Simulated scan of single mutants.
Amino acid sequence: MEEKKEIQIELSAAVAEGTYSNLAIISHAPSEFVIDFIRVTPGAPKAPVKSRIILTAEHAKRLLFALQDNIRKYEAQFGPIQMNDPQRGGGMPPFMAPGGQA
């Protein structure tokens, strides 16, 4: 039987502050998914990418399951998350995939 090793996760003060994003663009290649988190400001001519996360396909799928599980738990505690436009998933599409290639 294999012994489980504990990983101590370190969170610096700068990273703990977080980065606000209101748009994500997801693209992929055969071996990875790339998620660019962007902050769109009304009236601004440009929207900067604030963070880029690169994941293996397996970890992208694990993230999907983790998000689904956490959304279920959130809605069980706080009620359904309201979307502005149910047909499109909100007023602005929150996730876009330009061509599906990284």
Rank of each mutant, 00 (worst) to 15 (best):
G43Q: 12
A16Y: 02
Y20N: 04
I25S: 03
K5V: 07
A16H: 07
G89P: 00
A24W: 01
A13P: 03
N84R: 09
E10Q: 10
E2L: 11
A60N: 01
E10R: 13
A47C: 08
L64T: 14
S21V: 07
K46I: 14
L23F: 15
I35M: 15
N22W: 02
L55T: 01
A24V: 15
T41R: 12
I9A: 09
G79A: 12
A44N: 08
I38L: 06
P80H: 14
G79Y: 02
T19E: 04
L63S: 08
A60T: 03
D69V: 02
M92W: 03
L55E: 00
P86A: 06
D69H: 08
G89C: 06
F33D: 00
E75G: 05
P80G: 07
Q82A: 12
L64P: 01
D85C: 09
D36E: 15
V40Q: 08
N84W: 02
M83P: 06
P48R: 06
G89V: 04
A44C: 13
T41H: 09
A16S: 11
T56A: 04
T56Q: 06
I53A: 05
K4E: 09
I7S: 12
E6T: 11
L23G: 04
L11P: 11
I7R: 14
I26W: 00
I9Q: 15
L55M: 07
P98V: 03
I53Q: 01
V15R: 12
P45E: 09
S21K: 05
L23V: 13
A102V: 02
G18R: 07
A47R: 05
K4R: 15
T56N: 05
G90L: 00
F95S: 07
E6H: 12
V34H: 03
N22R: 01
K50F: 01
E32W: 02
E10Y: 10
A29K: 09
S21D: 05
Y74Q: 05
I38R: 02
A24M: 15
L63F: 04
A29I: 09
A16N: 12
L63W: 00
G100V: 00
M1P: 00
